[in-house]
Amino acid sequence: MSQCIKIIHYKAGNIASVTHALSRLGVQAGLATSPDHLKGTDKLIFPGVGHAKPAMEVLRQTGMNEAIRNYRNPVLGICLGMQLMAEASEEGPMEGLGIFPGSIKRFSDEVKVPHMGWNSLHELSSPLFKGVNEGSHVYFVHSYYLPVSQFAVASCEYATRFTASIAKDNFFGVQFHPEKSGTTGALILKNFLAL
């Protein structure tokens, strides 16, 4: 049975990479720019790069903020997408969607910012990571992070231990870029599609 997968398109996502990654898995994803585009969809992917505040503005203007919050099928937030699903962010500062508890913080200047490159995943505990080994490397590019909480399903370390992945109800988030993380990333996306 083929699923209807849509990628939330709100000017802050690098949608080409996500579209290509899904296409390599045999899935042709559509784009969703307004709440009515979510009708009849089975899953959503919520990507994002760039600055949190203007991204959140676009979501508010289009009503997508409420639409995402009220969505009942699986949602996967990637990078900024995941961060916008938290309560708030130091970037801006601004209020987020409040789906995940906790507030986004900036990495301290003790380390180079952005955290850019391949880092390892630990404390894996979600069907998203079925078949993924502890210590597997995935690609990160971010200057802000979500501290670990009870909802973290993977952690990573860069000056501090932070949330590499989070899950609550039907909402999932990954701080890294599965669409750019080689075979490991492809497996994680495949696991999301299989939820």
Binding site: G117, N119, Y158
Partner: peptide, 10 residues
């Protein structure tokens, strides 16, 4: 200078 698990890239 900064110890972390981040790998060096080639």
């Amino acid at each position: 200078k900064r110890c972390s698990m981040l790998t060096k890239r080639i």
